[in-house]
Nucleic acid binder design. Structure first.
Lengths: 222, 222
DNA sequence: AATATTATTTAGATTAATCTAAAAATTGTA
DNA sequence: TACAATTTTTAGATTAATCTAAATAATATT
C-alpha cells in the first residue's frame, strides 16, 4: 500500500519542478497536465491518488503542494536523476545532450544504498553535467551565485556554470561554440539593436551570441 | 504498438530461463506461472499478448517457444542483467549476494548504446559475479567446461567458477568458507555415508562440505 | 476404454492509468 | 454584479495486468 509507481513518481517530480518556479505557491492542475503531457482529467485522478497516499496536500480547485514525505521523495528523484547523469557523462562518456532520457529511467531504480554508493563512486559531485545542483542525502542543495550571461556588462568576465534551457538543440549549439561548463567568457561588446553580444572565450576566440543564447547560459561573475 | 512492457520482458526472461533447462522443448503454462509467481490464468492471458506481438510461438495447450525476435530480446535482457551485476560488484563494491534485485530493475533500462558503453567500461567481461556467462552484443554465450564439485574424485583439483544455486543463503555461506570464484579446491576425502567431502582451499585451509554444497558449486577441473 | 487427475483456458471482476465529453467551479471583464 | 471565459472536476469508457472460479482439454491410471 506504500508502493509508489513510476507514474506517481513522475507526477511528484513534475509538481516539484513547477513549485520551484512558482516559489512554493500551490501548483494548479493545468500546469501539471502541460508538464506531464496529459489531460487535466487524468491529473485530477492522479491528484486524488497522491493525496490518499499523503504525498501531496490537495483541495479541489485550490491546487496542490507537496507534503514533507512527497517533497523528500521528489528531492530523492532529482538526486538520483542528476547522479546518474554524472555517471553517464563522466564514466560512460556520453555528451551532456544525450543523457536526459536515460537518467529519466534510471532515477526510478529503487535501492537507496545504490544511490549512496553511486554518489561515493562519483566523488560526491555537487553539480550535474548541466550545472544543476545535486541534493545531498539529506536533501540539501548547494546554492551558487549565478546570473544569465545576458546580465553582464561590457568588459565583465564570467565562468560558464550552467544552462537554463536543457534542450538538445541548445546543448549541441553550445558544443559547437566550445561554450562548455568551466569556460571563461568576457563580454567584448553588447549590441543594443538585437541585444546580441560579442564574447571572448577563455580570453581568445570571439563569437557573437544572440539574446536567446545569453539568456539561457548561466555564469558566475569574476 | 512495438513497445514492450517490463512485465512482458519478465515473461520473456522466464520463458527463456525455463527453455534453457528444458533444452528447447516447448515451455508449458504452469512452469511459467511458477517462475513468475502468478496464476496460470494470468499466464495464458499474457501468452496471447506475446503471441500477438510475435515474440513467442504459441498454440493452445501445446506450450510456447520464443521466436527469433523474442529470443533476441530475452538474450539482451540476460546480457543487461549480468553486465549491471558486474558493475554493482566491481565498481560499487556490492557483494555477490546483494546485486540480484537491483540488476532485475536495471535490466529494463532501454538504451542499447548504454549497454554497449557499459560493457566497454567494464572491460567486456565474459562472466558475471556468479560465474554465469554474459552474452555478447550478438547474443553469443562463452561456453566453459565445468562440473559440479560433487563430480570430482578424491585427489582431484578444480577452480571454483560458478554456482548453481543463486540464493542469498548459499552465497553468504560460501563467503563464510572463503569459497569465492577463482578459489582452488582439492578433494581431500569423500565420505560415502552422507556424500559430504573434505576439501582443501588453495592447498591450505580444510573444510567439510555437504552434498548440497558440492552439488551447487561449479568447478573447472585442473 | 472409462475414469480420475492434472493442466490449461475461459469468463467475469478488479485496479491503475489513461481518455473524451459534459458539468461545475472559479476567475476575469464589461 | 452578471456574463463570459477559463480551469477543474465528474462521469463513463478503455487498456494492461492481474485475480478467482468454473469449464474444458490433455494425460495418467485402473
Amino acid at each position: 500500500m506504500d508502493n509508489i509507481s513510476h507514474t506517481e513518481e513522475n507526477y511528484l517530480k513534475a509538481i516539484f519542478k513547477i513549485a520551484e518556479k512558482e516559489e512554493g505557491r500551490p501548483v494548479n492542475t493545468n500546469a501539471i497536465s502541460v508538464e506531464m503531457k496529459t489531460t487535466a482529467a487524468s491529473v485530477t485522478d492522479m491528484l486524488n491518488r497522491l493525496s490518499k497516499k499523503e504525498l501531496i496536500h490537495y483541495e479541489k480547485y485550490k491546487g496542490v503542494t507537496l507534503t514533507i514525505k512527497g517533497g523528500r521523495l521528489a528531492t530523492l528523484l532529482v538526486r538520483k536523476h542528476r547522479l546518474w547523469e554524472v555517471f553517464l557523462v563522466e564514466k560512460l562518456h556520453f555528451s551532456w545532450d544525450e543523457v536526459h532520457d536515460m537518467a529519466e529511467e534510471l532515477e526510478h531504480i529503487q535501492s537507496e544504498e545504490l544511490v549512496e554508493r553511486l554518489d561515493d563512486y562519483l566523488g560526491r559531485p555537487k553539480f550535474d553535467p548541466h550545472g544543476d545542483p545535486i541534493p545531498d542525502a539529506e536533501g540539501n542543495f548547494t546554492f551558487r551565485k549565478q546570473a544569465p550571461l545576458a546580465d553582464l556588462h561590457q568588459g565583465e568576465k564570467g565562468i560558464v556554470v550552467g544552462v537554463q534551457d536543457h534542450s538538445t538543440a541548445f546543448l549541441q549549439y553550445l558544443d559547437k561554440l566550445q561554450l562548455s561548463l568551466g569556460a571563461q567568457v568576457t563580454v567584448v561588446e553588447r549590441f543594443d539593436y538585437d541585444e546580441s553580444m560579442k564574447i571572448a572565450l577563455n580570453g581568445d576566440k570571439e563569437h557573437i551570441v544572440s539574446k536567446k543564447v545569453s539568456q539561457n547560459l548561466f555564469v558566475q561573475k569574476q
